[in-house]
Design a protein around this nucleic acid. Sequence first.
DNA 1: TACCTAAGTGTTATTATTACACTAAGCAGT
DNA 2: ACTGCTTAGTGTAATAATAACACTTAGGTA
Lengths: 242, 242
Amino acid sequence: MELSSSISVDCVVFGYDEERLNVLLVERTLSDPPSSDFTSDWTLTGNHVYQDETIEAAASRVLFDLTGLTEIYLEQFKTFAHPERLLKPKDQLWMKSIGLDPTRRVVTVGFFALLATQQANLKWMGREVKWTPVKAVGDLAFDHNQILDAALIALRSKMKHEPIGFELLPEKFTLTQLQNVYEQIFDAQFDKRNFRKKINRMKYVIPLNEKQVGVPHKPAQLYMFSREVYEKTRRELFDFII
Amino acid sequence: MELSSSISVDCVVFGYDEERLNVLLVERTLSDPPSSDFTSDWTLTGNHVYQDETIEAAASRVLFDLTGLTEIYLEQFKTFAHPERLLKPKDQLWMKSIGLDPTRRVVTVGFFALLATQQANLKWMGREVKWTPVKAVGDLAFDHNQILDAALIALRSKMKHEPIGFELLPEKFTLTQLQNVYEQIFDAQFDKRNFRKKINRMKYVIPLNEKQVGVPHKPAQLYMFSREVYEKTRRELFDFII
DNA sequence: TACCTAAGTGTTATTATTACACTAAGCAGT
DNA sequence: ACTGCTTAGTGTAATAATAACACTTAGGTA
């Protein structure tokens, strides 16, 4: 039989806080009726797509409602549609409680978003919202662990070949911060001098006439990323690969 | 209002025929009622997802029905859900003619598949099926030009960083064939000696004890690709990038 | 003034990239 | 058997990128 389904978007919102990579989670509690069986747990941030809305608009709406920001790096990475993705008893219970038909198949389109954590001012439909270090995420509701895993794979893969690390930093950043972003996300350590040599070749990482102030050590040069220069100077690489 | 929709998959089936990159198209005619207004045109190969079917299974089913093959390289690349993606008059007419509700939003998950054209034995629900050179594809039905464009972008991007060019060749291939695959898909020319030097470093491209036979020139060494060796010897690269 | 912290910098050996042109092997036609 | 046609296959030298490695500098704090 042909499939009729609801469509939702889930945004895996990654935030970097100068220490590690975090992901935004919102609490899921059973409010109506409040149930003692239902211990609260955590979900990614998602919502249904409205009738006349594109999925990109739905994802932006979720992000805006959540953070108050509009210019967020956002990218569709994968769609999740397994027939049994929402059939765990707790998920069923929760769907009933908010008035959704629990037998209805829900297809969700996964997006990931990148931002510097301090940019965001968090709220979500009155529910609790928190940043959680990606490495400390426990069992999530629905199939959200799977979605998060896929988002991480997509993030790493994109990050290897395109300059999106900057999206996780404030507009002005130091090279040490930039290096830390890559070290955290790839669980790797790079040599400072070699890293900087490489960055030096990237004409789109532009030194500013500005240094850190108020740090209790030699203040670092600040840089910014220019997507414009990147688009002009980018050259195609083939790695395909050893 | 919340969205209720049908889910379909569309497979962008790429085939390489030792000359260029082709894509499989099927003819769309209005059979019931046959209409003289409705000039036939071409679509990608897709179908609805059934109630208890995963989208991956639906895509494999489409490919199997189309080619009789089961072990095809297949990858989900993007989901298309624009509210107006099927509202062109011709698309509406066609949906009515096959008994679909034309006001219903249809969300389609795009997959691309790779094969060597000679492997496939084509048929599709009695409709005409043809290989078309990607560069010669005209206006397609629905939003299928958009889907094809996105598939090409995804293919090129993946191909730059992972060894999937082999999927477009027969199991045993020559280095010249391999080079042609990349030249065609990237619209570029590579130096033969440098290309071969690079391939030489890839331990997963394995020379066989076998040569071409019956060619009217020096017969070429045949090679095969070993995914197993690839997985073992692959090393992570960071290009992120000038 | 001494100490702490992170910033910033250069050299050398190895490896990869680029640009470039001739010889070898098989087949077809005479 | 010889000639010609076609594609396969190969090496070198100059330049650029990578990898491994340790000390000095600038500011703040006590």
